[in-house]
Design a protein around this nucleic acid. Structure first.
Length: 262
DNA sequence: AGCGTGGGGAAACTAG
DNA sequence: GCTAGTTTCCCCACGC
């Protein structure tokens, strides 16, 4: 992350105040959902909360093959968190989860996985700044299986099924499909929210702020505490992809939010 | 043609 | 019982 500290402090204060107001009753259920069940795990599959976040921004245009991106591998200098401790990650989400939306959302899990070095062979940032990420073809099923186990699904989750769920996000605008193999993109506001909630111990939160939680409050999303703009209103995103016009299916995105064709 | 991937309809399932 | 959010199944399209 870039140095956003002072700007972010206000934002996180607002976020946390809001979260405290909405979800004052204590509970750890959400955090429990973030934990993977190692007993269920295949030996080769790890899925535990990541422990620290490296600051390795990837410049737009640095899109390479979905093979190896060592420069964006999160720092794993700290050991996995002890499960008896409250999660240092998604603190606001924990509070958020205490009331109402308790279930772990797929996009939240994906964001978490993007910061988990153990999952770097399955899912990686393509352009972290714009929230673009891709699945690694070779190991995408591993991530899907991990997701399925975390959700406690009866059957094994596959990439196909997980991708189906991701396509549903195109309708809600939370994640858009990028016209590039196995590549998707977070809605910038969702990304900000997730990033703001991913606060490593001792760090301050990111740019998510009043302008997001306050000014843009939208009736449709008021209940969840944040505003999810339609994909057509993704300013950072659209700007950063000007050099990728051939890559991105803008028409698809623009028609995905409310179902109306552009 | 085969395969991998993407897209979507529709019904089922689960938790809140 | 209702709803949101998937999950599951299925079929089809497309590009390599």
């Amino acid at each position: 992350m870039v140095s956003l500290d002072s700007d972010f402090q206000d934002a996180i204060d607002v976020i946390q105040r809001d979260a405290d107001h909405l979800y004052h009753d204590a509970g750890m259920k959400y955090y429990e959902t973030l934990e993977c069940q190692p007993s269920l795990g295949h030996p080769g599959i790890t899925c535990h909360p990541y422990t620290s976040l490296a600051t390795s921004p990837v410049t737009p245009g640095d899109w390479g093959e979905p093979t190896s991106w060592p420069h964006i591998v999160p720092d794993l200098s700290l050991p996995p968190s002890v499960h008896s401790e409250p999660s240092p990650f998604y603190p606001a989400m924990q509070r958020h989860a205490r009331k109402g939306r308790k279930k772990l959302r797929l996009f939240e899990y994906l964001h978490e996985a993007l910061h988990d070095t153990n999952m770097v062979d399955s899912i990686q940032w393509t352009d972290r700044g714009s929230g673009t990420f891709h699945f690694v073809s070779k190991n995408k099923e591993k991530l899907a299986e991990c997701w399925g186990r975390r959700k406690g699904n009866r059957k094994t989750m596959t990439y196909q099924k997980m991708a189906r769920a991701l396509r549903n996000y195109s309708r809600t605008g939370e994640i858009a499909k990028v016209r590039r193999k196995l590549t998707y993109q977070f809605n910038p506001v969702i990304l900000q929210r997730l990033s703001a909630n991913l606060v490593p111990p001792g760090h301050t939160a990111g740019h998510m702020g009043r302008e997001v939680l306050g000014h843009h409050q939208h009736p449709m999303t008021a209940e969840v505490g944040y505003y999810v703009p339609p994909v057509s209103e993704w300013p950072v995103w659209s700007g950063q992809y000007t050099t990728y016009q051939g890559e991105y299916d803008l028409a698809t995105v623009l028609t995905s939010v409310d179902g109306s064709k552009v």
